[in-house]
Nucleic acid binder design. Structure first.
Length: 434
RNA sequence: GGAGGGGUGGCCGAGUGGUCGAAGGCGCCUGACUCGAAAUCAGGUGACGGCUCCGCCGUCCGGGGGUUCGAAUCCCUCCCCCUCCGCCA
């Protein structure tokens, strides 16, 4: 949520900044609402004050046993109440409209964010890792996975529909190993606290991080209880600080979680229908930090570095991109994407997104800390994938594939793979019943 | 799912219709005592919002609604926590 004070003091500046990311903010209408709000609020509070006095007077009269005076004073209070009711109703109406407005408004992009309408305007910062040279035409992960008998889209569809995949044997093992490696790196080397949060959350929790009310159609929702399946662990992890005031010593708070993520992928019908790139359910290791505002920028760079370590350890080539204004997520003020090289597609694809949300989410969920003077202030929240496990598996298959379709396991992962150094083409033990 | 108990300020915990933003304690801040500290004593110490902003006003006792001139206190409803029973990985 954008700071209401800023909105009041300089709505033009807000509108200008939002325009950079393609959001139109109607300043004239806002001003109009503000004027009404002010008028109603002043009147309402004056009436409340009057009523308070009047009620007190009733009490005093009753105490002295002067029933006649008490009755007369009651009448006065009733008169005040009638007007108060009208004014408050009007006030609440304006207030509700303003609130709705605020909830739908995306975060302000940082002045540093490159200008642009869509992902084609994102700024490439640098490339890391050498792309593999194949003496043959590299296959894509869907073919590789099928040949290896580890990825099974058909059975996934049978069980749950399209965009679901069943992992078999070494596919499962790979997924487990990747998650384990990532968790170890972040917990042991980067100082994050491991958390196992619920995979379902209430609506207000999703509102805190910004998925609701605007992006309901992207979420799975349970019918009986009205709970939402989390689209990312960012949701529960960031909300750990909801309605809390952290003591000075508790920041920066760093959390890491390995969870399944669920996305309806509404509006992406044609996209990435092949393979595991875009699934309704996928595992992801997520990093979240809640920090002092002075450390926001620094934490953002730090998380990006933490995510990069994973890719470096896995020896997967990637590039770092800063998203342009038009490609920024709803809650983000600045975002880095890490994109891995996929030889099967001949393209870089997103595997991690690292966002500095400034106080946007903190304001929505009232995540605060006590400053030097002991006053509660909004914290800054940040999140980043560290990294997406499904896509890491895809990248690994495609980058480490061999001529015959087997896949070499990168050094760092071997301890987690029972010290295997490659996955062969033979069918897994037990095989598929189908 | 059934029965009962409960949700009060950073924390603990009183308060069952009126002057209660709320006793008391802890914590924290200031002062006294002390070479200094501890202990002790005295005073102070909530959040949010509005405005004609060195002050005044309003709101806030889990959320929402209701009764009343007036609600932390009464009623309805939802959420959460605890105990017992049932069920269950």
């Amino acid at each position: 949520m954008i700071d209401p004070h800023l909105l009041r003091e300089d709505p033009e500046a807000v509108a200008e900044t939002l325009a950079r990311r393609g959001y139109r903010f109607d300043v004239v209408r806002w001003r109009e609402l503000e004027e009404r709000r002010k008028e109603y609020q002043i009147r309402m509070e004056a009436l409340q004050s009057e009523r308070k006095e009047a009620s007190k007077a009733v009490g005093e009269a009753k105490k002295t046993g002067d029933e006649a005076t008490a009755e007369e004073r009651k009448g006065r209070a009733e008169t005040i109440n009638r007007e108060l009711e009208e004014v408050s109703a009007a006030f609440e109406e304006v207030k509700a409209e303003q609130h709705q407005w605020l909830l739908d408004m995306p975060n302000l992009p940082d002045p540093e964010v490159p200008e642009g309408e869509d992902e084609t305007a994102n700024a490439e910062i640098r490339r890391e890792g050498g792309r593999p040279e194949f003496g043959f035409e590299p296959a894509d992960h869907a073919d590789l996975g099928e040949t290896l008998g580890i990825l099974d889209a058909g059975t996934g569809a049978k069980l749950a529909g399209s965009r679901f995949t069943v992992l078999w044997g070494m596919g499962t093992r790979l997924c487990r190993a990747l998650g384990q490696l990532m968790m170890d790196i972040h917990a042991d080397e980067h100082g994050y606290t491991e958390v196992a949060p619920p995979a379902l959350a209430r609506g207000e929790i999703l509102e805190g991080t910004g998925q609701l009310p605007k992006f309901e159609e992207d979420l799975f929702r349970t019918e009986a209880d009205g709970l939402y399946l989390i689209p990312t662990a960012e949701v529960p992890l960031t909300n750990l600080h909801r309605d809390t005031i952290a003591d000075s010593g508790e920041l920066p708070a760093r959390y890491v979680a390995w969870t399944a993520c669920f996305r309806r992928e509404a509006g992406s019908y044609g996209k990435d229908t092949r393979g595991m790139i875009r699934q309704h359910q996928f595992d992801k290791v997520e990093l979240v930090q809640v920090v002092h505002p002075d450390q926001g920028l620094q934490a953002w760079e730090e998380i990006r570095g933490h995510a990069e370590v994973v890719l470096q350890r896995l020896e997967i080539p990637y590039r770092v991109v800063e998203l342009c204004t038009g490609d920024l997520g709803f809650a983000a003020r600045r975002t880095y994407d890490l994109e891995v090289w996929l030889p099967g597609q001949g393209a870089y694809r997103e595997i991690s997104s690292v966002s500095w949300c400034h106080d946007f989410q903190a304001r929505r969920m009232q995540a605060r800390f006590r400053n030097g003077e002991g006053k509660p202030r909004l914290a800054h929240t940040l999140n980043g994938s560290g990294v997406a496990i499904g896509r890491a598996l895809v990248a690994l298959l495609e980058n480490f594939q061999q001529r015959q379709g087997s896949v070499v396991i990168p050094e760092a992962l071997r301890p987690y793979m029972g010290y295997r150094n490659r996955i062969g083409v033979s069918r897994p033990q037990g095989g598929s019943p189908g």
